[in-house]
Simulated scan of single mutants.
Amino acid sequence: MALSFAWEPSPTNRGPSLAIGHTMGAPASDMDALLNPTVLEGLDDASNNGQHFKAELAYGFPTHNDRLTLTPGLSLALSPDSRSYGLLWSLAPYSQPGHGEPWEIALEGEWEENTTTDTPVDHSLMLNFSILF
């Protein structure tokens, strides 16, 4: 079972946005697993009963003479055996209502730790570039 909530009061890519999700239960099996083979990391462990919570908060600011939008954000993911924190930054052209962003550059830093074992903390830095054509 999965529950999610997303709030984005402006139809553009500017202003606040909030996304919250909570999943629980075992991953799909049989025919459902064939139709949707992707499984969120950590949900296949029976010891945590498939519990996973994720939240992301961001705010889009105008930049470069109102032609681009700079969006910093924070993310948090919790499960019984791990937790991760993230800082997000993205840059995209100003998106008018009803139009997608033609391109986006995003930088994400993440800090993840396992709460059940004494393993080192994982740090990651990811740079993404996407373009629609």
Rank of each mutant, 00 (worst) to 15 (best):
M1C: 05
M1V: 05
A2R: 15
A2W: 08
L3V: 06
L3W: 12
S4G: 13
S4L: 01
F5G: 08
A6G: 11
A6I: 03
P9M: 01
S10P: 05
S10N: 13
N13G: 09
N13I: 10
P16I: 11
L18F: 15
A19P: 04
I20V: 15
G21F: 03
H22V: 12
T23N: 13
A26L: 13
P27K: 10
P27I: 09
D30K: 12
P37M: 00
P37G: 02
T38I: 11
T38G: 04
L40D: 06
L40V: 07
E41P: 07
G42Q: 03
G42I: 07
L43Q: 14
D45W: 03
N48M: 01
N49F: 12
N49P: 06
G50W: 01
G50Q: 10
Q51E: 07
F53L: 15
F53R: 06
F53D: 14
K54S: 14
A55R: 11
E56W: 11
E56L: 13
L57M: 13
A58G: 14
Y59G: 07
Y59A: 02
F61T: 00
P62Y: 07
P62F: 11
T63D: 02
T63C: 09
H64T: 13
N65S: 10
N65D: 14
P72N: 03
L74D: 02
L78I: 07
L78T: 08
S79C: 00
P80E: 03
S82R: 09
R83N: 08
R83W: 02
Y85K: 05
G86Y: 11
G86P: 10
L87M: 11
W89Q: 13
L91E: 01
P93S: 08
P93R: 00
Q96L: 14
P97G: 02
G98Q: 01
G98C: 03
E101P: 03
E104P: 02
E104A: 10
I105H: 05
I105D: 04
E108C: 07
E108Y: 07
G109R: 14
G109Y: 14
E110Q: 14
T115Q: 05
T116H: 07
T117F: 10
T119P: 01
P120W: 06
P120H: 04
P120T: 00
D122T: 09
D122S: 08
D122Q: 10
S124K: 07
S124I: 04
M126H: 10
L127T: 06
L127M: 12
N128P: 01
F129M: 04
I131G: 12
L132R: 12
